[in-house]
Write a protein that binds this DNA or RNA. Structure first.
Lengths: 223, 223
DNA sequence: TAGATTGTTAATCGATTAACAATC
DNA sequence: TAGATTGTTAATCGATTAACAATC
């Protein structure tokens, strides 16, 4: 069997399809055509069909897609049908926000533990999860079959902890620290760089302002 | 003057350049060539030069780029030299995490206020900022010249609040709710869909597992 | 001046969109 | 069967990379 590499752009869109299908499912819609979905999601129908056909033919000519079936299948593709054991390193507000987000557990992400360096936090309990010191890290990962770690610690500590996680056998890092991590090829890192996201917003709001001023100037007669 | 539209891909990369240049600056590096930067950032030198030249010629032949100058210029492009007045709607862990992230203020993002619907949170003070009820929203936005809002509330409440923000004159929404917002063309929305980010991580770790199993199978003789 | 490195044009690559035959 | 809509091939569009002349 040929190993068709799926493009990054497709993978980025997949969870959004999943979200929309979930909403359709909740509102009792049974079937949907690529065309109607395209209107709702503001993407082209062609793109939807192309994206889905990377993974197989989920639809039926003349009918469209069965919402429940497609929802389930995309869930499988995303690995949401499997269980992922997760730890959170960094029990500050961001770490706690993740721990408190109940929906994650619904989708197979089980938070096995929380860790922090700050001794004042160690021993506290968040959502039934005790905050531990990082000394226990390696042993805990082995004992609890942990594959994923969310890194919500300052950038100065992140590379060192990332190395320890990798050595302890972690396969995926959800990185919120403002630094790029160096990991082996078989460990995946998903970055959430909030400050970069905010800068993009800043860029866009500024260029929107500039454009408006430009238009106003033109409206008042060419400059 | 022609209004060259900058591609989204370029804007996505810009904050990352900014981060690397900031680190170089801190470590005392004065000048850098696109080639050396490309090695550090793991992108092509060609891409760096193309990206920068969307905004003007910041380098010098035979020399490279002056780190401090380029850092400042990218800051200007991103609008970080200007002041952005920000409010946070939703004073849960995520809202508090944002409020507590000091670096934002360093880059011109001033948190003017926090709001919540939960009466038990109203009146509490986070980082010197009092949490208010959403009744005050419109008045507060006008009084404090607020242009940006971070939405860290559940998806059920988000569309309604977004409408109110838009009507009150907000120009940019940093949306953490798991829903796509409908806003006029001149309002910009930057989405941070954490659950989608986690699903991408899940996809990637699963497909990595599959690939490994495939390889193992091949290594044990073709199946 | 010679060497280095940019700015920019041209070539390549990949992703998106359009079109349509296949088929439910 | 006729109509609808997919799956898939072909055409277009845009983004990335390569190459090199300009220039510090």
């Amino acid at each position: 069997m040929e190993n068709r590499e799926i493009s990054k752009a497709v993978i980025t869109r997949l969870p959004r399809y999943y979200r929309y299908l979930g909403e359709l499912l909740e509102s009792g819609v049974e079937r949907i055509s690529s065309n109607e979905l395209s209107t709702r999601m503001k993407v082209t129908a062609s793109q939807i069909r192309q994206d889905l056909n990377n993974f197989g033919g989920f639809g039926q000519q003349g009918y469209g897609y069965n919402v429940k079936y497609l929802y389930t299948e995309i869930g499988k593709i995303l690995g949401i049908d499997r269980q992922h054991n997760l730890i959170i390193i960094g029990a500050g507000n961001l770490g706690q926000a993740i721990a408190n987000y109940a929906n994650f557990e619904k989708r197979g992400f089980i938070i096995k533990g929380m860790f922090d360096i700050n001794p004042r936090l160690i021993g506290l309990v968040v959502r039934g999860i005790e905050i531990r010191g990082v000394d226990d890290l390696e042993q805990f990962i082995k004992d609890n079959d942990v594959q994923m770690a969310a890194l919500t610690i300052p950038k100065t500590k992140a590379p060192e902890i990332a190395d320890r996680l990798v050595n302890a056998g972690i396969k995926a890092i959800w990185n919120f620290a403002h630094v790029d991590l160096n990991v082996p090829d078989d460990v995946v890192v998903e970055n959430v760089h909030l400050s970069e996201s905010l800068m993009r917003l800043s860029y866009r709001v500024c260029s929107m302002q500039d454009r408006k001023k430009e238009e106003e100037r033109k409206a008042r007669g060419e400059s």
